[in-house]
């Protein structure tokens, strides 16, 4: 049980770190760049969702 708490804590730190970096990078992007990034992020999450669905998760 304790190990899962640690895993959860690690994942939370990773996600928040990536989120922080993304926010910092996004500041310097142009408007078309931001839009393209949003479209690609949406597509990426949709495809990941589809991948896990196909694998029966």
């Amino acid at each position: 049980m304790r190990i899962y708490i640690l895993y959860g804590f690690g994942i939370l730190l990773c996600v928040s770190g990536v989120g922080y970096l993304a926010v910092e990078y996004i500041k310097y992007l142009s408007e078309p760049g931001k839009l393209a990034c949003l479209a690609l992020t949406t597509a990426m999450f949709a495809l990941f969702g589809k991948y896990f669905y196909e694998r029966g998760w």
Binding site: Y25, Y28, L29, S30, G33, A36, C37, L40, T41, A43, M44, L47, F48, K50, Y51, E54, R55
Partner: peptide, 27 residues
């Protein structure tokens, strides 16, 4: 088929990184 979805998701991730680099250079 499921692997194809995974590869496409990775291509999208690579695309995001490419936008960060190219957009940062242009201007």
């Amino acid at each position: 088929k499921s692997n194809l979805y995974l590869y496409l998701a990775l291509v999208c991730f690579a695309g995001i990184l490419a936008i960060f680099v190219v957009d940062g250079y242009l201007g």
